[in-house]
């Protein structure tokens, strides 16, 4: 075999190995988290129903209680709250950047927003802890400040740059011809944005929202710092609660590997893993339907 041919084969093989490592990693993560997470149910005989819907969490009790519903509920509530705050603001800002002040948007806002995507989440958590939590404590009576509200706001600030920057990309991708056609028909700028631009960019904007949601759902430390970490079901938005990620973060170091209490935490991470599959599926579904 000639040197060139040998080099070609070697290069192709080496790069294939690199790519295969990604596949192997993804499969082994799914396998290991999956088998650890399922052990709670199949080895320790905790009922899946209790885990998903039970509201009592006391793994060290006699008998142990493994109702993870407060964690699951907490995760969903803070995530939806975060997206509910962040989405309108971000989409508004994205419209401003692309439709109202495009030059300023492109030159100044977009780079700054993209920079903010890179701010570490612990920093968001720390600001939440040192500014937001005291603020909530002082504004409302009878609260500690650690609350769903604090978690939702911290997460919303954290995902605003992500959603804004992705939504702006989607809006920018709308062909200029469409805008011109609408404006030429006598539509106002807002009518053009509402009826033409947003409608065309809708799949991209929805994808941006799902990605923001997925980031919020999986965020651990920023939430853990402000959520209060109690295991009771909250009754109001000002109550402290817990999420899957903060439950894992706070307890993984304090439980012993192999015990039920530890395995239950792996079940929670399996739930996180499944949710990230759900988010991927959602994004694919949005991508498939060209017009919604």
């Amino acid at each position: 075999m000639s040197k060139q041919k040998w080099e070609n084969t070697l290069g192709r093989t080496l790069t294939l190995i690199c790519a295969a490592i990604l596949l192997i990693t993804a499969i082994s993560i799914t396998y290991f988290i999956g088998s650890k997470g399922l052990a709670t149910f199949f080895k320790n005989d905790v009922s899946i129903g209790e885990f998903l819907t039970g509201t009592q969490w006391n793994p060290d009790g006699e008998p142990g209680k493994f109702g993870a519903f407060p964690f699951i509920f907490g995760s969903f509530v803070v995530t939806f709250l975060a997206v509910a705050i962040a989405a309108p603001l971000s989409i508004g800002a994205a419209i401003y950047m692309t439709e109202i002040k495009p030059r300023f948007g492109k030159k100044v806002l977009k780079p700054v927003i993209e920079l903010l995507v890179g701010i570490p989440s612990v920093v968001y958590g720390f600001i939440g802890l040192s500014v937001l939590v005291p603020f909530i404590r002082n504004t409302f009576d009878d609260t500690m400040g650690f609350s769903i509200l604090a978690g939702g706001i911290v997460l919303s600030v954290m995902i605003i740059p992500t959603i804004t920057s992705l939504a702006a990309d989607a809006l920018e991708a709308v062909p200029q011809d469409l805008r011109n056609a609408s404006l030429a028909l006598g539509a106002t700028r807002w009518q053009t944005i509402w009826r033409v631009v947003l409608r065309t960019a809708l799949p991209g904007i929805l994808t941006a929202m799902v990605l923001g949601m997925s980031r919020a759902f999986g965020e651990a430390l920023a939430v853990q710092m402000v959520i209060g970490n109690t295991t009771a079901l909250p009754t109001s938005i000002l109550d402290p609660t817990n999420t899957l990620t903060s439950g894992i973060t706070a307890n993984m170091g304090n439980t012993i590997a192999g015990t039920v209490a530890n395995n239950a935490l792996w079940s929670m991470s399996l739930l996180l893993l499944i949710m990230s599959f759900v988010f991927i599926l959602l994004i694919r579904l949005i991508g498939k339907k060209k017009v919604m």
């Binding site: 993560i29 991470s269 990230s276």
Partner: peptide, 30 residues
């Protein structure tokens, strides 16, 4: 295979980092 690799990239990039940390705990630490 290529499809699988592309899906893996999507999965890995959307994993919560705490889950990645737990995988690390299992494999690399323990």
């Amino acid at each position: 295979l290529t499809n699988g690799i592309r899906t893996s990239i999507e999965v890995l990039s959307s994993l919560p980092s705490i889950v990645v940390g737990l995988f690390g705990l299992l494999i690399f630490v323990t």
